[in-house]
């Protein structure tokens, strides 16, 4: 599970048709320490009174279809009866369940947010947007794609005030950091590189 936030009861109730089977994922619990389980339980307890919910499966790593099969086996009856499967997980988990039950109304209970630095092991203060053309050589190891609100690759814009970003005054201007770092390691010459152009054709989504 990536970083998720509950969509809220108001947004979900109209989506729930007929009998509802709940699935909650805590696979990435340790990285997002999310309240998904708790939210699901609250909804479960509340809705139980109105007889809409016919089962709750808490599992980890529901994005793994192999596990999913083994775990759903014991809930086969409830799932068969259910009209809606409400899933508390990131978008990957919801899609996996939607694929496993193509005839069921599968509803996502959460919105999924990008989690910086969760490409490798755990969340980090660093983020990598997988731009496919690493700029870190020009910037002293500070990523302009993620450290700059505008992902500028040719230097600072005019929006920095007191070293902070115009988009968020709590965020340090990425290019100011780059400038300092390059000065520190004696590599300010890196800024004299040719004009940089992003190549968006390397985006795998459209490959």
């Amino acid at each position: 599970m990536l970083l998720t936030k509950f969509k809220g009861k108001e947004a979900l109730i109209p989506q729930l048709k007929g009998k509802v089977f709940l699935v909650t994922c805590h696979g990435c619990k340790e990285v997002n320490l999310s309240g998904a389980e708790h939210e699901a339980e609250l909804l479960f307890n509340e809705a139980l009174a109105s007889q809409h919910i016919n089962g709750l499966l808490t599992a980890d790593y529901i994005c793994n279809p192999e596990y999913l099969q083994a775990r759903f086996e014991r809930f086969a009856d409830q799932v068969r009866e259910a009209d809606t499967i409400l899933v508390f997980s990131c978008g990957v988990g919801v899609q996996t369940i939607a694929d496993a039950f193509p005839n069921k109304r599968v509803i996502a209970a959460n919105d999924t947010y990008p989690l910086p630095g969760f490409q490798g092991v755990t969340p980090l203060e660093h983020d990598c947007k997988q731009c496919g053309q690493c700029y870190l050589n020009l910037t002293g190891g500070i990523c302009p794609i993620t450290a700059c609100s505008k992902s500028l690759i040719n230097g600072q814009c005019g929006g920095a005030k007191n070293g902070k970003c115009e988009v968020d005054p709590n965020m340090e201007c990425g290019w100011e950091r780059i400038q300092k770092k390059l000065a520190q390691i004696g590599r300010l010459d890196a800024l004299k590189c040719p004009v940089q152009l992003r190549d968006y054709s390397v985006d795998a989504k459209s490959e």
Binding site: L197, R198, D199, Y200, S201, S206
Partner: peptide, 13 residues
């Protein structure tokens, strides 16, 4: 059309 279809395939769609 998607940018990838044209003469500037590296452009941001």
């Amino acid at each position: 059309d998607h940018t990838r279809m044209g003469d500037h395939p590296g452009a941001k769609p």
